[in-house]
């Protein structure tokens, strides 16, 4: 099984890999030079003209990339202003006759964060064929990270507790269960974990954690990337039992997690248990929305006609026997059929 991952390239990036190249998650695929903060470059005084007159002699236009020593203005009579270092020309101030330029810093690497084979290169992106399984979640935060998967709870409905996170988590992507508190996320981050994969998370705790991370960055705290991915929903939502079994079977596999894109690649992995809408009697099902969110069970039968939920919404519904022993009538729209997982 494989999936195509697209690494978007910023303008001006210099690609250093070729098609067919086998790349590792931390490998540099391209280099780019990042613009620093803007600085002022006097133009009119050097041309010995008024600011308005000097504007007529600009030879570059705002937005242009200039190499060191390249002229930015020239009066055609020998007087010219050159840029001292490679920079972006951002604007010209008609009041004081100066140019706003942003010097380009040293080259920064563009990293793909995935392992695989380069299958395509264009000006916009590098495409990499990733040997493994890909899954998408319903939300996430953080950038791109990679590390070994590590099962951190013993059951899909368990909460990932801060006390369960120790130094073994460093550099790994933890697979939690139904929720991780803000404290657990902070501890995982502090101990050096690469990320966390969860069934659900309380939106407020996730936002608070995100805000705390942003503040850390603002005050210049040392940081590596850290990502969180929610696969099922928001609130306390267990992972589907079959999916949890799949994660257990792939404990220790290398994975790449893209938090903000809510995507996870797991290498050398079988496809995760498939899902489909409109389950049929006998199907294993996963429920969404409270009070059954994250509950797995078997669909016993689809009821005739429309049924009213406690909220009063009349809809097609099914009788579900959940794994925890409960039986309930659940809107069919809130159920997904899930494939069972027999283990690797």
């Amino acid at each position: 099984m494989s999936a195509i991952h697209r690494v978007r390239l910023p303008t001006g990036a210099r690609v250093i890999v070729e098609i067919g190249h086998e790349v590792e998650p931390a490998e540099v695929l391209a280099n780019r030079r990042v613009a620093g903060e803007g600085t002022i470059l006097p133009i009119s005084t050097r041309l010995r003209r008024s600011p308005a007159a000097a504007a007529e002699h600009l030879v570059a236009r705002p937005g242009a990339l200039l190499e060191a020593g390249e002229p930015i203005a020239s009066d055609g009579r020998g007087r010219e202003v050159v840029v001292p270092e490679a920079c972006l020309f951002l604007g010209y101030d008609l009041d004081d006759g100066s140019a706003l330029i942003a010097p380009l810093g040293t080259a920064e690497p563009v990293i793909g964060h995935v392992r695989g084979r380069v299958t395509g290169i264009s000006a916009e992106a590098i495409e990499i064929e990733v040997p493994g399984a890909v899954m998408s979640g319903v939300g996430g935060i953080g950038g791109a990270v990679h590390g070994e998967l590590m099962l951190a709870v013993s059951a899909p409905a368990d909460e990932l507790r801060a006390t369960a996170i120790d130094v073994n988590a460093a550099g790994r992507i933890l697979v939690g269960g139904s929720r991780a508190s803000g404290e657990a996320m902070t501890r995982a981050r502090a101990i050096g974990a690469a990320g966390i994969v969860l069934g659900g998370v309380l939106d407020k705790e996730l936002r608070d954690f995100e805000t705390a991370q942003a503040r850390r960055r603002e005050v210049g705290a040392p940081h590596g990337d850290f990502a969180v991915l929610m696969l099922e929903g928001f609130g306390k939502v267990a992972l589907d039992g079959a999916l949890f079994g799949w994660f257990a079977a792939h404990d220790g596999h290398m994975a790449s997690l893209f938090g903000a894109d809510a995507r996870l690649y797991v290498y050398e992995a079988e496809p995760p248990p498939a899902r489909r809408v409109l389950p049929r009697p006998g199907d294993r099902v996963l429920a969404h929305r409270r009070p059954f969110a994250g509950g797995s069970g078997r669909l016993e039968r689809i009821l005739d006609g429309l049924r009213a939920t406690p909220s009063g919404v009349a809809t097609r519904a099914a009788l579900v026997r959940f794994d925890d022993g409960r039986s309930a009538i659940v809107p069919l729209a809130n159920l997904e059929a899930t494939e069972s997982f027999d283990g690797a």
Binding site: V138, H288, T309, P310, A333
Partner: peptide
């Protein structure tokens, strides 16, 4: 899950 329905 925009196609799901509020139960409670």
């Amino acid at each position: 899950h925009p196609a799901t329905l509020p139960y409670l």
